[in-house]
Design a protein around this nucleic acid. Sequence first.
DNA 1: ACACAATCATTGCACACGCAACTATCCAGC
DNA 2: GCTGGATAGTTGCGTGTGCAATGATTGTGT
Lengths: 151, 151
Amino acid sequence: MGIADDAVEIRARGWRTLAALHGLIDTELERALGDAVDLSVVEYTVLDALSRQDGWHMRMQQLARAAALSPSATTRLVTRLEDRGLLTRILCADDRRGIYTELTPAGRALYERAHPLHDETLERVLAEAGGRPELAPLAHALHALATPSTD
Amino acid sequence: MGIADDAVEIRARGWRTLAALHGLIDTELERALGDAVDLSVVEYTVLDALSRQDGWHMRMQQLARAAALSPSATTRLVTRLEDRGLLTRILCADDRRGIYTELTPAGRALYERAHPLHDETLERVLAEAGGRPELAPLAHALHALATPSTD
DNA sequence: ACACAATCATTGCACACGCAACTATCCAGC
DNA sequence: GCTGGATAGTTGCGTGTGCAATGATTGTGT
């Protein structure tokens, strides 16, 4: 029952809180995006990452990192989105192993439609989390994380 | 580009950070617990939740909430652990719809073995996350979350 | 007492995931 | 220029998950 034990318990509690908040947000986003634009959260994450490059390419591996996915899952995810006409595979000339992906106009249009819904849902769920005693501290901490413009 | 837009962007960034840290911790825990005691993270979560009740029962729904799982997934998860002899189903007398679950001695023993490994891994991964600029703020924020003894 | 809605847990089904094995391409050494 | 090792991406396979439908039990209104 020493200080070290307290640190362990604090870490464990923090992890449980993190997992709970993540699960709550993820579930709500999944439902909202699924209902409105038939997109899962990872699919939206890929579109978001691609749009943030503003028309520029991304390798499969970068996508895998951005979506926290395995290479195989990334392949199939890109295939799904490609089959829906939301992005295109582009074989790169200088390294013919690598494959670049790029948003199509349809993909960008769908993203523009999903983006505000995503943000609204996020705001709503975070507000809801702020009302639960177990989640509130972490939910509030998110607002104060990295605000590079306020230093 | 007003204040409201900034708030939206901060929330989105916070959510990405949260998801990234969650994914990192989850993956590492999955690997560590899987290798050592052949337990997934959700399986460990259930054992942990049950052990925290210290010998007392838990309904399926409580387990589902604790593990952030759907009822169907909870059923199969409990079945898996029951087949391994780690917990037992107990039909409750006063409400014969409800089913209680309880750790067996083997389940408690395995949990005692997994617990320190879980904590060590969590400490290691959080330290690693503290070294990544994108994750560091959230990783540090976890330590300061709910420390009821330090007010 | 009886029918009807509500609740708890379970099963059918389709799907997304990770791991391991595989192919294709690039690069280093000789 | 060719061979061997490393890297990028894809496929086979088994498994865990959520949703919708189902069975079992409780509570409620009349």
